Each structure stands twice: as structure tokens, then as C-alpha cells.
Simulated scan of single mutants.
Amino acid sequence: MQRLLPDALSDRLREMIVEGELSPGEKINERELCESFGVSRTPLREAVQALAKEGLIQITPRRGARVAPMTVEDLDEVFPIMGALESLAGELACARIAPNQVSEIRVLHNAMVTAYERGDRHSYFHLNEEIHDRIFKAAGNQTLIQMRRGLAARVRRARFRANLSAARWKKAVSEHEEIVAALEARDGPRLSRLLRDHLAGKLDTVRAAIRAEMAEREGAAD
């Protein structure tokens, strides 16, 4: 593998965590990752430290680093804040977005639907993210974008996991059609509500999955 620069290494590790290639609670195996990425331990440890600041990795003295668990408490803390940011971004975007920006988002949405129909979760997820990124960009508020960036990593992992449910994935596609239609109509209040509800639906799905896993583990321990 081509040697990765520090930022690219952080990005790759982040993707592995978000998409479940590295599971919650899994130990970060420095030797294996260094061999896989073709890097020394120093840049890998820098990347691990960066992701620890984002809340994706937990570092324990003398015990090493592990992928942080995804807890109901953490999601309940982060998602309402992100929902408020998404809601505001939608309202501002409707007031400020240019026609070509709307057209570009429609193209991304159509590509996302195609990815859904193919069952391509990886492409779907990244197209989905690009749509939300474009809405924030259209809002034209750098403070809002920076606030979102600070929470993004913790929310992205849950967003990816939410669509592992076939029923939720199908519903998410339908919700995205409404989101794009509201943007095309420049209906700020409607888009604001749709974005908030869309994120709340994902939270409900992931929360239920985490609680089911906890109950299963407790049952196995009895």
C-alpha cells in the first residue's frame, strides 16, 4: 500500500471505525495497522490521538487504545445538538442557495438512489454525506459549519449503522426525496423540520439496536 500522510491516515482509520471495519471495543493493533498502511508507529499514534479527540478512540494508560463504544447516553447527548444544527442549516440554505447548487444536490440524490437500488451501502453513505455537506455549504455560515464539524465523527458512525436496517434504509431514501423536494421549493420551515426528523429517526434506530445488543449480552451472561 502507498504510504499515507498523517491526515490521510487519520481519514482512513476514521472510515474503518465509522463503517464498522474496526468494531466498538476492538483493540487498536498497532503492528497490524502499521504493516497494512506501510507506516511507522509514530504517524499511526498521531492519527490515534487525533481520533481520540474526536471521541472515536479511547486511550487507557498501559492498556493501549480501543475503538470507543457507541452508547445510548452519548447519542442522546450529541444527536439533539446535531439535529438543531441541521435544522438551522436547512432554513438558511433555502434562503441562500443558488439554482446550480440545487441542481447539483438533485444529481447527487439521484446517484444515491441508484446506489441504494444496487445495495451499495458504501457509495450510498458517501453520497448521502455529500448532500448534507452541500446543504451546510449553501447555508453560508462558517460558524455553523465549524460547530457541525466538531460533532460529525460521533454522529457519522451512528448514521452509517442506522442504514444497516433494511426498513430504516428504505425509509431514509424516501425522507431524502422529501428533503430535496423541500430544498427545490425553497421551503425553509419544511426543510428544517424534515432534516431534524430525519436525524431523529436514525437516532431511534441506533438506540434500539444498542439496547437490543445490551440485552443479548446480559442474557448470555446469565
Rank of each mutant, 00 (worst) to 15 (best):
L199F: 08
P61Y: 07
E177A: 10
G38N: 04
N128P: 00
E26V: 03
Q146G: 08
R12I: 03
A209S: 15
Q2E: 07
E213G: 02
Q49S: 15
I145N: 07
N141E: 04
E32D: 10
L22I: 11
R96G: 01
V39K: 03
R217P: 01
R149Q: 14
D11N: 10
R159L: 13
G38A: 05
V113S: 05
E35Q: 15
N163K: 05
R156G: 03
K202W: 06
L92S: 03
F125I: 02
A220M: 12
S10W: 00
I131L: 07
A93Q: 03
E91F: 03
L56T: 01
D204Q: 10
E30W: 03
R196P: 01
E19C: 02
R45V: 09
I105S: 03
V155K: 12
E46Q: 11
R62Y: 12
R190S: 13
S123G: 06
R168N: 07
S103A: 11
A65L: 11
R190T: 15
L92K: 13
R196V: 09
L144A: 11
T60N: 13
R63C: 02
I179A: 04
H132Q: 09
L127V: 05
T205R: 14
V72N: 07
S87E: 06
D133Q: 12
Q101T: 09
V107R: 08
L108N: 05
A162V: 08
R148K: 14
R207V: 00
E54C: 13
Q58A: 15
N100A: 08
V155T: 03
G201T: 04
H198G: 07
T205Q: 15
P189R: 01
S192A: 13
L195R: 15
E15I: 05
Q142F: 04
G64Q: 09
V102K: 04
I81C: 09
A220I: 10
V107M: 03
A139C: 10
Q142I: 06
A84L: 09
A200P: 07
R96C: 02
P189A: 03
G83N: 04
A153K: 11
D197T: 11
R106A: 11
F125M: 02
V102R: 12
Q142W: 05
E178A: 13
L191S: 03
P189L: 01
L194G: 04
A98C: 01
S192P: 02
A212N: 14
N163L: 06
V107A: 08
E177K: 04
A68T: 01
K202N: 12
D133H: 14
T143L: 14
A139G: 15
I17Y: 09
R45S: 13
V113N: 01
L85M: 10
R154H: 04
D74F: 00
N141I: 01
